[in-house]
Design a protein around this nucleic acid. Structure first.
Length: 1088
RNA sequence: CGGCCCAUAGCUCAGUUGGUUAGAGCGUACGCCUGAUAAGCGUAAGGUCGGUAGUUCGACUCUACCUGGGCCGACCA
């Protein structure tokens, strides 16, 4: 008993029992090195492959990480217990801008130049040092929540082996012709001098105010050969100058204007404003020209404008590589905002770049990478773009080229780590992976992935794949996997290397300088030789060709690192070829919804391009964890939940259960600590008493699993029922887990523990454990309960591993296992499932519930014995269950009635009501269904009797007689008035409420027993302690003691019972519904 | 603005291929049980299943549109 945990509610700050048992379990795991032992026992088992998505350890873990980790752990543990080898290699994502930003903050420097000034080596050293800043906290949390993860040999994305595998993969892509360099418009952070990934851009959107300018682009006079429609425009304008109006929110791009775009099928109007004529989309005319009295001279399609030339607003430089200042058609032009005419600056817009290239328009980019206007822009040269906006606008106004100007508030991205720095779209030379070449394959492979929830496949993820664009791979940063591309500085020849050996083959002394530096400074990590700045110093030449190969200075998008994880974690193909092949693809991964464009994509893209396989078969996508009000958790709002505020209070297992059971994994959760307290109370607060009940009596009787007990089929009905339920639950639980539905499995188990094991089996069987005179019956009860608890321990193991461990140990199983986690999950034995018995018991439970309701309505407490209950049910199985003597006894005892009558026919106790069984009769009858419904409400007594006797009913619904059988009709029994009745779902319970003097006397005896037991407990007596009893009270009390004295004595373990006229001095006074009695309980000291 | 998801009791959520009286837990009120109880059980109040229209004998369930919330994408120029 000592190990069954006692609550210490007196010590407020002491950890509660749940927390204590978890910590004790974890301590045992450490001592037993249990994780390793569990892995070892499956060394030769078939694999279930899991990939751990690498978190970055330079931030603290939060409550949402607990959700993801609980989901990962529960599925992995389930398959482990089911007999598979489930490798769980930890991993850390170590590269990327967030790390650099943290270091910049620490060093109090900001921007690319500042880093160069500081020194790249020093900077990257700080990066490497900081990536594991919080790794201790991650490990602590991982261990405390019982997440089994091999933290001792994690993969680390900056390690040389990992980098080398990434290089290998890029060389493979290069061989397939999938690596190229191009101009690409990207989101550019001018101050930091770097491009940002779309994920990073998405973090930085916020509302801002920008100038909103409509500029005049004055058309040049038509030339010979122009279309007649063009000439018509000018003749209609009759000599006034004609301007196309175009809208922009970025005046700083106007000097780089190369063209104008219109929609060929959009209607445009030529409007006479008096002094000039302007052209705008017809549908926008009224809004744009509302302050200008005007008349419409002509209306025409945009196609009429295509090919027209206009005077550029500025002429600092001419576009290169194509025509300039021409009106073209573009499909993306719309008329929801603006003027219907779009200013094209191919240096700064993705759409602009595309249509310009398609139409032979040139390229011009008069902004420097640092975000200042180019030196050739005259008065604006060197100005930061947002400052240049004002001067450009003033200049245009002076020259009469501004039609209107104002301000607009809209969403615009800023750098997510430097919130005052706006990003700009900027065409930049960059390295790309041609993922679009594999678009169809990506979609095809995705279609076979088992997504949870399913809609991600064709929804969010499918959409993302359908809109696939080439992967912009390079980052002009410092801390990342270096791009393994060397370019000849004279010929431009590209050499992609795929290993360290590749480098040595080209330059045997490549690493000499590094080794020398390392000899001088042993603190220099060996991994640095494949990182900046050391890798940049490596060059080579090729015999017979001029020029030197120098490394492309960029590093790789860190999402590529994570996507390379399936092979890079193995240092494939340099090592572990076989292991990789065995563990690719993964059977299961699980990450948050935010990984759609992140890890889910990067892994699929690389798996597809390199191996033509989807790298994972099944995915659980977990939702976000919001706060109690459903708001997103954020540090700035201050509503984040620290796992360490929750775990020491309620325990990690209740937290895991809460996260798994509260809603489907993919639904965002409103985190509420009260919900965990509820789980702790309702689930664990029920489970532990089940255990201590078992241990209490098993210890008293010295019962062990080795004690012989009757074979299962020979045990009482309740035992067979529990056994059947146990196997049914095992079956359903396994099915749910196999379908990656841990919520269903968890709820199933919870219901079994609370409703069936605790609240029905144990409660109904208590007396057998302490009163049974039949040792076989008692041993059957012990064996049944023990087996049930043992199975619960296994089913609980994946969900609440520490509690399961504790439960299993306390059961002292004969399985020789030091922990439940070293065992095998029980299988469902179909032979143990007795469906009929389960249905019958369900009927009994329903009738009991109704019986209680009937007692409630009659205000007759259960201690008051009553003569009879009349019960009925809707079908044969239910009726048979109520007639089964073993089950009927449960009803009588539970409801404290002398007799249970089963009413099968309508009669003095019940009436019946017949309803159509719709799923059967709907298709059969169609529209005649309503006629049947009416007919059934008007059945005669004879028809009802006929149905009850012969099982069939013949009705005429207007087109001849139809015979209905019992499968097509539902019979619902209801109690007649005059009894205390309750009915539901075809069941009914009618209580005979007569209380005879004899029954009243017996009831009083039961009240006395109850008070004596309470007093025993108040005195702190053991359940085996014998007592002497002295009871006094009025005539009624004395009569009860006289009539039922032997029963009172037996149930309270009284060796001696006396009935006194005067209350002894040590008696307690008790109130029995208005009757006062005095009870003196004295221990005899005879404990056996 | 676009895509996707969600909307069921005061709160957190279930609800299987369309089927009879839409469920559970928490909370509230009242009652009950306790020789396992950390507790538990029962009853009641509480719902036009976000709205409208449609398909159907029948819609919480399917379809369309609308409203509100979330996530993601989007400077639409």
């Amino acid at each position: 008993m000592s190990e069954v945990v006692q609550d210490s509610s007196s010590e407020k700050d002491a950890p509660n029992s749940q927390v204590r048992l978890e910590e004790a379990a974890l301590q045992q795991w450490r001592e037993l090195d249990l994780f390793r032992a569990a892995q070892k026992r499956r060394a030769d088992a078939p694999r279930f492959t899991f990939y751990e998505g690498p978190p970055t350890a330079n931030g603290r873990p939060g409550i949402h990480h607990v959700l993801a980790r609980a989901l990962k752990d529960v599925i992995c543990r389930y398959h482990d217990l089911d007999g598979k080898l489930v490798e769980r290699k930890a991993g850390w994502d170590t590269h990327g801008l967030p790390v650099e930003v943290e270091v910049e903050k620490k060093l109090k420097i900001h921007g690319k130049q500042a880093i160069c000034d500081y020194g790249i080596e020093g900077f990257t050293r700080h990066c490497m040092d900081s990536v594991f800043q919080y790794v201790g906290e991650w490990e602590k949390l991982t261990e405390r929540i019982g997440y089994w993860l091999d933290l001792d040999s994690p993969y680390v994305t900056y390690h040389e082996n990992y980098v080398e595998s990434v290089w290998w993969s890029l060389k493979e892509l290069h061989k397939k012709g999938l690596l190229y360099q191009s101009h690409k418009v990207i989101w550019w952070w001018p101050r930091g001098g770097t491009a940002l990934s779309s994920a990073e851009v998405g973090l930085g959107y916020r509302e801002t105010t920008d100038p909103s300018v409509v500029a005049r682009f004055v058309l040049r006079s038509p030339r010979a050969g122009d279309a007649a429609s063009t000439a018509d425009i000018f003749s209609a304008a009759s000599g006034k100058h004609v301007a196309l109006l175009a809208w922009t929110t970025t005046p700083w791009t106007l000097p780089s204007n190369c063209g104008l775009a219109v929609g060929a099928k959009i209607k445009y109007s030529l409007c006479d404003l008096g002094a000039e004529c302007v052209i705008v989309a017809s549908s926008l005319k009224d809004k744009l020209l509302e302050a200008h009295p005007h008349s419409v001279l002509r209306e025409f399609d945009g196609a009429a404008l295509v090919g027209l030339n206009y005077e550029p607003l500025f002429s600092f430089a001419l576009p290169e590589g194509g025509r300039a200042h021409e009106v073209i058609h573009a499909d993306f032009v719309d008329i929801s905002t603006g003027t219907g005419c779009v200013h094209l600056a191919p240096g700064f817009g993705e759409d602009d770049t595309r249509v310009a290239r398609e139409n032979g328009i040139g390229f011009l980019q008069l902004v420097e990478p640092d975000g200042t206007m180019s030196p050739c822009t005259g008065p604006f040269a060197g100005q930061p773009i947002k400052e240049a906006d004002k001067d450009i606008l003033r200049d245009l106004k002076t020259r009469g080229l501004v039609f209107s100007s104002g301000q607009v508030r809209h969403e615009y991205p800023f750098c997510w780590r430097a919130p005052d720095d706006p990003l700009i779209q900027y065409a930049r030379r960059s390295w790309f992976v041609r993922t679009t070449a594999a678009k169809e394959r990506l979609l095809a492979l995705n279609s076979a992935i088992d997504w949870h929830p399913e809609h991600i496949r064709d929804g969010r993820f499918g959409d993302f794949l359908r809109n696939n664009v080439d992967w912009a791979l390079s980052r002009e940063r410092f801390w990342g996997t270096p791009l393994p591309i060397w370019v000849n500085d004279v010929t431009g020849e590209v050499d992609v290397i795929g290993s360290v050996q590749d480098i040595l083959d080209r330059n045997a002394h490549a690493f000499d300088a590094f080794e020398a530096a390392r000899a001088a400074d042993p603190t220099l990590s060996s991994h640095f030789r494949v990182h900046k700045p050391w890798i940049d110093a490596i060059t080579w030449t090729k015999p017979g060709s001029e020029g030197v190969f120098r490394r492309a200075p960029e590093v790789i998008d860190c999402w590529y690192d994570s996507g390379a994880m399936p092979f890079a974690q193995r240092h494939y193909p340099f090592e572990n070829r076989e292991l990789f092949e065995q563990t690719f693809p993964a059977d299961y991964i699980c990450e948050g919804l935010d990984q759609t464009r992140g890890w889910f994509y990067s892994m699929l893209a690389l798996g597809t391009l390199l191996f033509d396989k989807a790298p994972y078969k099944s995915v659980i996508v977990n939702g976000l964890v919001n706060d109690k009000q459903g708001r997103k958790m954020s540090k700035s709002v201050g509503n984040t939940v620290n796992p360490w505020d929750v775990i020491p209070k309620h325990g990690a297992d209740p937290l895991r259960w809460y996260l798994l059971a509260s809603s489907p994994p993919w639904q965002s959760k409103s985190f509420d600590a009260d919900g965990i307290a509820e789980v702790e109370r309702r689930i664990f607060g029920t489970l532990w008493p089940c255990l201590s009940f078992f241990r209490l009596y098993a210890d008293v009787d010295s019962w062990t699993p080795a004690t012989p007990s009757p074979a299962a089929p020979l045990r009482p009905a309740l035992d067979r029922w529990l056994c059947s339920r146990l196997h049914s639950v095992t079956r359903d639980y396994r099915a749910a887990m196999d379908e990656f539905d841990p919520m269903k499995a968890t709820r199933l188990l919870g219901t079994f523990i609370t409703d069936e094991l605790s609240n029905w089996y144990i409660r109904r069987n208590r007396a057998r454990f302490w009163k049974s005179k039949d040792p076989a019956d008692k041993n059957a009860a012990y064996a049944t309960l023990h087996e049930a608890l043992r199975t619960v321990a296994f089913l609980l193991a994946p969900i609440a591993p520490m509690s399961a461990h504790h439960l299993h140990r306390e059961l002292r199983c004969a399985d020789g296992l030091v922990s439940v986690h070293l065992g095998d999950l029980p299988r469902c034995d179909a032979a143990c499932i007795d469906t009929t018995l389960e249905q019958r018991m369900a009927a009994v439970m329903t009738v009991v519930s109704l019986g209680r309701a009937a007692r409630e309505s009659a205000r007759l407490k259960v201690r008051q014995p009553l003569l009879r209950l009349i019960a009925s049910g809707p079908d044969v199985v239910a009726l048979q269950g109520l007639k089964d003597e073993d089950l009927a006894r449960e009803v009588r005892e539970e409801l404290n009635v002398k007799e249970l009558l089963v009413a099968e026919r309508s009669g003095p106790y019940c009436t019946i009501n017949v309803k159509p069984h719709l799923p059967v009769l709907g298709p059969k009858l169609g529209k005649r269904l309503s006629a049947l419904k009416t007919a059934l409400t008007q059945l005669s007594e004879a028809q009802v009797a006929g149905l009850e006797e012969r099982g069939e009913l013949i009705l005429d619904l207007g087109d001849g007689p139809i015979t209905f059988n019992t499968a097509e009709l539902l019979v619902e029994r209801k109690g007649r008035e005059g009894f205390a009745v309750a009915s539901a779902a075809g069941f009914m319970a009618a209580l005979d409420t007569t209380v005879t003097p004899e029954l009243e006397c017996e009831g009083l005896a039961r009240e006395l027993i109850n008070r004596i037991q309470t007093q025993r407990k108040a005195l702190g007596l053991k359940v085996t302690t014998r007592i002497t009893l002295c009871i006094s009270g009025d005539a009624q009390v004395q009569a009860a003691v006289r009539e039922h004295g032997s029963r009172i004595a037996a149930e309270t373990l009284a060796l001696d019972l006396t009935c006194a006229d005067e209350a002894p001095s040590d008696a307690v006074h008790v109130d029995l519904d208005g009757i006062t009695a005095h009870i003196a309980v004295r221990a005899t000291g005879d404990g056996a």
